[in-house]
Design a protein around this nucleic acid. Structure first.
Length: 715
DNA sequence: CATAGCCGCCTTTTT
DNA sequence: GGCGGCTATG
């Protein structure tokens, strides 16, 4: 694309923007905060700002854009490329950026660049080991709780030494010990957990002036999407990276903050003006996505949050169907109802990719799957990490991890006897014991097996065979990953064992073949393919990354995963007390507000058609329980009272109660009528489904209408 | 040393 | 309801 073409493209884009969006994209120098509601095009603002910056002569190399998921980064790269913004801008997630920084400046951060990234399962093993080594038991010090506590510390950038200095009570002193042990284990394995990536990068930037000045002078323009969900460590990274040029552009929506539980700090966005005093603030309140009915429901709901800055949702679209709320007998009926409705949509020529079902917890997907299978509706469960947690995939990756990072004992212990090769617990214990006494790693100890006196000849020769096999694999371990992966599958013996299992191993083989296809893609797409880079990249793979809009299937995902996406037709299921809001958030006002925001995010994903449902009975953890409709259902401003809804559910013996609901109106509401056009509500008489509304239309005519028939939409 | 079977544990959301 | 870890047995 020539320079002139680029300018033309940018101008064409500018014409589609509202004046405030134009200002946000083109006219601001210095810090900029874009507070933008759902469907207002805030991600687009960032994309076009990148294009506009490059257009005005900024080198792509000097731009750094940070997104929330890899998928979002990938999309932004493609869109920027389509606008003529040539490659070279750094566009990635916080975690990927940190991996890059840590690998480049590994020596400054006192780590080696081939570090493994530990996921929840690896972390769990390490923390259990740490608690054991501290002579504590896991009943009083639950591993998960300890990991949570350590995660919180890391997000606050409190490293082991800093935290140890500020402990006073028994619990925090003990936590400090476990924390130290845990970090020691990670260090021995040459591994970092997710929080380490952020903490180490932040501390590196803050403590190493040289690195900080190099990176902050490179990134003349910093753009961050979903700023409301950044945590404190990410905030400090941003502060450091922006320190030279102060050209930070953040976009976000406090009403869509749904990761507080993970350390996201809403104060980051609320205090932006304080952090960057000369910041320009642009508010985008127009919504280009959803129908007025959907927005009215979303607006009514989110208005219930007390801890919130007032913001409007202004519809730019004028027509739309009603929002429906359905109550079903149980979760299976609910799933059938959803499948049936989806079937009707598909019959009416809706594309599969225009339909999505959202739920609060992953376990809810099972009932939906069964119904969709029965109805022969193809679906995809958007759960990227699931693939990588399968046993056979973890086995394959463990081989690769050991080859990339021989210090990774979690991976080594996983594969040393998988498939079984006669190196059992006793042998492993003896090797580990030897390693501990000689202060060396497990892998090194294996190499010295002939000298380990406690081992007899048989295990020694088995260990030698294992080492020889690994040695053979090292030959393929540089450059492209695919040849190595193929070799690992065969040489490790995994292929042989799975093939011998016949039908049972078939699925596992298919999965491994899928893994190998993925490495082919990696080899093609990576600038410089390497095993270390590949492993680090897939460690940061997220659920949302697995979403493939082009696969021609209905999408099923959690409300959290739905963030940032949009669909014509949205189903939100299980809107019941205990599920949404989740029981773990009960008795906590702040957490209930977060659940409300989560529901708000789900609702505002819908472009045209929103179907909300709940079930009277639900099986939870194997128990068949009576449910209570979610309080949120009565906050949508829809035309039913709690009492009426409850009695409708109670009295109706049939399996489905279908409430086709129309909105309530208030005096002063702006509405649109199909025939009479826009107008203002003068009066509203609430009589359930017989409600009457008096509207003064802009034509001057005032009319009394039955809400049921008038099909008025809120503007 | 391998395997099967049983018991007890956890169980929200995720980079 | 599902998984990991432990134990008993071959």
């Amino acid at each position: 694309m020539t320079k002139a073409d680029q300018k033309a493209t940018t101008r064409a884009f500018a014409r589609q923007l509202t004046p405030s969006q134009q200002k946000a994209v083109f006219h601001v120098d210095g810090p900029l905060l874009v507070i933008a509601g759902p469907g207002s095009g805030k991600t687009r603002v960032i994309t076009y700002r990148i294009a506009a910056l490059i257009d005005s002569g900024v080198r792509p190399h000097n731009i750094c854009a940070i997104t929330f998921t890899n998928k979002a980064a990938e999309e932004m790269r493609q869109r920027a490329a389509a606008l003529g913004a040539s490659a070279g801008a750094h566009i990635s997630t916080f975690h990927s950026l940190c991996v890059r920084i840590l690998r480049q400046y590994a020596s400054h951060a006192d780590i080696s660049s081939n570090f493994s990234i530990y996921d929840a399962a690896d972390q769990s093993r390490c923390i259990k080991e740490a608690i054991k080594l501290c002579d504590l038991d896991t009943t009083n010090f639950a591993p998960v709780r300890m990991l949570e506590a350590i995660s919180t510390l890391k997000n606050k950038l409190l490293d082991v030494d800093t935290f140890a200095q500020q402990t006073d009570d028994y619990f925090s002193k003990t936590l400090a010990k476990i924390y130290a042990r845990y970090q020691h284990i990670l260090k021995e394995n040459n591994a970092l957990d997710f929080d380490d990536l952020l903490m180490n990068a932040a501390l590196l930037l803050e403590n190493c002036a040289d690195v900080c000045s190099r990176l902050s002078s490179r990134f003349k323009f910093l753009l961050i999407d979903e700023y409301q969900d950044t945590n404190h460590a990410q905030y400090r990274i941003v502060k450091a990276l922006a320190s030279q040029h102060n050209n930070i552009c953040a976009t976000g929506d406090p009403d869509q903050s749904i990761y507080r539980w993970r350390g996201a700090d809403i104060r980051n966005i609320l205090a932006f003006e304080h952090d960057w005093p000369d910041a320009t603030i642009v508010k985008l309140e127009e919504n280009f996505r959803s129908t007025p009915n959907i927005l009215a429901v979303a607006d009514n709901l989110i208005a219930r949050n007390e801890n919130r800055k007032q913001k409007r949702l202004i519809a730019t679209r004028h027509t739309g169907r009603d929002v429906t709320v359905n109550a079903f007998e149980n979760e299976n009926q609910e799933a059938n109802g959803v499948a049936q409705k989806i079937g009707e949509l598909l019959k009416a020529d809706t594309a599969h990719s225009d339909v999505a079902v959202f739920y609060r917890v992953n376990a809810q997907s099972r009932a939906l799957e069964e119904s969709l299978i029965k109805s022969k509706i193809p679906y995809q469960i958007v759960r990227g990490v699931e693939f990588y947690s399968r046993k056979e995939i973890r086995d394959m990756l463990a081989y690769l991890k050991v080859l990339a990072n021989p210090s990774d004992e979690i991976a080594l212990l996983r594969i040393i006897n998988t498939p079984t090769r006669g190196i059992g617990k006793t042998t492993i214990d003896r090797v580990r014991d030897y390693a501990a006494r000689n202060n060396i790693g497990c892998f090194v100890a294996l190499k010295r097996a002939p000298q380990i006196s406690s081992l007899s000849n048989a295990p020694k020769s088995r260990i030698a065979a294992f080492l020889k096999m690994m040695e053979g694999l090292t030959k393929h371990s540089s450059g492209k990953v695919t040849p190595l992966a193929e070799e690992v599958f065969v040489e490790s013996g995994l292929e042989g064992v799975l093939k011998a299992q016949g039908a049972e191993g078939k699925n596992a083989i298919e999965n491994i073949n899928e893994l190998i296809s993925a490495t082919v893609q990696y080899d093609e797409q990576a600038e410089e393919p390497s095993l270390i880079d590949y492993l680090q990249q897939i460690s940061l793979f997220s659920d949302a990354d697995a979403y493939d809009p082009a696969c021609g299937r209905v999408a099923l995902m959690t409300l959290h995963t739905a963030k940032g996406l949009e669909f014509d037709n949205v189903f939100i299921v299980g809107v019941e007390e205990g599920l949404l809001p989740h029981e773990r958030s009960a008795d906590n006002g702040d957490e209930t507000e977060e659940e409300r925001r989560l529901f708000f995010v789900g609702i505002t994903r819908a472009k045209n058609n929103l179907n909300i449902s709940c079930a009277r009975y639900r099986t939870i953890r194997g128990q068949f329980l009576r449910t209570i409709p979610s309080q949120f259902l009565f906050e949508l401003g829809l035309d039913f009272s709690e009492a009426a809804f409850q009695s409708a559910i109670l009295n109706n013996q049939s399996s489905v109660i279908n409430n086709q609901l129309s909105p309530r109106f208030r005096r002063g509401d702006l509405v649109a009528h199909k025939k009479f056009g826009p107008g203002t509500v003068k009066e509203f008489t609430d009589m359930g489904e017989n409600s009457i509304v008096v509207v003064e239309f802009n034509s001057g005519q005032t009319t009394s209408l039955r809400v049921k028939y008038a099909r008025l939409s809120k503007m």
